[in-house]
Simulated scan of single mutants.
Amino acid sequence: MAESQFLRSMDELIPVFEREGIKLVLEPHPDDFIEDGHAAVNLVRGLNRGWISFLFCTPHTFHQGNDATGIISAAAEKVTYVHLADTLDHTASNGLRYIVNPPGSTVRVHQHAELGRGEVDFGEVFAALAAVGFDGVVSSCVFGWKEQAEEIGIRQREKATSLISTHFGGNVLA
């Protein structure tokens, strides 16, 4: 139902976006109508517009299906944006990585932590991005540590710059 509503909205919006020269970057998101990364890539490709692309959000890796290489490879040139943050794998330990009360609660944990505080394999992510020739935007996307925002931002930039240098080589423009 939600996907059909989205597509109906796109029928109305596509002519406006094209007339105004607006680019659209779509992201699968926890608790949205498409969480799975492969399904989201298929949706982006199915819309068949050069100005519609895909955002890979690293803290959603496990919600997207825990297949960063496969998703990024399938998206290839459609990946134009990456959100950079870490998270724990909520599916690990028989789904008991997080303990919530009361038992049976339908809450979904959604973290965006500093790189190195979770379980996302950033070497895998950046190797996959390099393999598809990614030349887009990478932005830090850490939430929940407002009191340390400046320090985290500096460390995030250093870690991102190192990953980019390692996997793409050469000088990094930041």
Rank of each mutant, 00 (worst) to 15 (best):
residue 83 H to P: 00
residue 28 P to Y: 08
residue 137 V to S: 01
residue 60 H to N: 13
residue 83 H to R: 14
residue 15 P to A: 02
residue 111 Q to V: 05
residue 30 P to H: 07
residue 151 E to I: 08
residue 113 A to L: 15
residue 22 I to K: 13
residue 160 A to V: 12
residue 150 E to H: 03
residue 40 A to D: 06
residue 7 L to M: 09
residue 162 S to Y: 06
residue 114 E to L: 15
residue 91 T to M: 07
residue 74 A to F: 02
residue 36 D to T: 06
residue 129 L to H: 04
residue 140 S to A: 07
residue 81 Y to I: 08
residue 160 A to Y: 03
residue 29 H to L: 14
residue 86 D to L: 05
residue 143 F to A: 09
residue 38 H to G: 01
residue 102 P to T: 02
residue 29 H to M: 08
residue 111 Q to H: 12
residue 26 L to V: 09
residue 2 A to M: 13
residue 100 V to H: 12
residue 128 A to G: 03
residue 2 A to T: 09
residue 105 S to D: 14
residue 133 G to D: 04
residue 147 E to K: 11
residue 23 K to V: 06
residue 173 L to G: 03
residue 49 R to A: 03
residue 149 A to P: 00
residue 94 N to A: 15
residue 111 Q to N: 15
residue 83 H to E: 05
residue 31 D to A: 15
residue 97 R to K: 15
residue 44 V to I: 14
residue 162 S to P: 00
residue 116 G to A: 04
residue 120 V to D: 10
residue 117 R to E: 14
residue 156 Q to W: 04
residue 7 L to R: 13
residue 55 L to K: 09
residue 37 G to Y: 02
residue 45 R to K: 12
residue 71 I to K: 00
residue 132 V to C: 04
residue 149 A to R: 08
residue 37 G to E: 03
residue 158 E to H: 11
residue 136 G to N: 04
residue 77 E to A: 12
residue 23 K to D: 15
residue 8 R to V: 07
residue 149 A to V: 13
residue 151 E to C: 10
residue 81 Y to D: 01
residue 133 G to S: 03
residue 125 V to D: 06
residue 62 F to E: 10
residue 99 I to Y: 06
residue 80 T to I: 01
residue 38 H to D: 10
residue 60 H to R: 06
residue 8 R to W: 06
residue 167 H to Q: 03
residue 91 T to V: 03
residue 103 P to A: 08
residue 34 I to Q: 11
residue 79 V to T: 04
residue 51 W to P: 01
residue 54 F to N: 01
residue 129 L to D: 10
residue 43 L to F: 07
residue 21 G to D: 10
residue 131 A to D: 13
residue 124 E to R: 05
residue 91 T to S: 12
residue 86 D to I: 03
residue 72 I to T: 08
residue 109 V to H: 05
residue 37 G to Q: 02
residue 109 V to C: 05
residue 7 L to V: 14
residue 140 S to W: 01
residue 170 G to N: 05
residue 157 R to M: 14
residue 105 S to M: 04
residue 37 G to T: 02
residue 156 Q to I: 02
residue 74 A to W: 01
residue 44 V to S: 03
residue 92 A to T: 12
residue 104 G to S: 13
residue 40 A to Y: 01
residue 150 E to P: 00
residue 108 R to L: 12
residue 33 F to Q: 01
residue 125 V to S: 08
residue 130 A to T: 04
residue 113 A to Y: 15
residue 46 G to V: 02
residue 36 D to H: 09
residue 158 E to Q: 11
residue 146 K to G: 01
residue 28 P to G: 04
residue 98 Y to I: 08
residue 162 S to H: 10
residue 29 H to T: 15
residue 58 T to W: 06
residue 12 E to G: 12
residue 85 A to G: 02
residue 127 A to R: 15
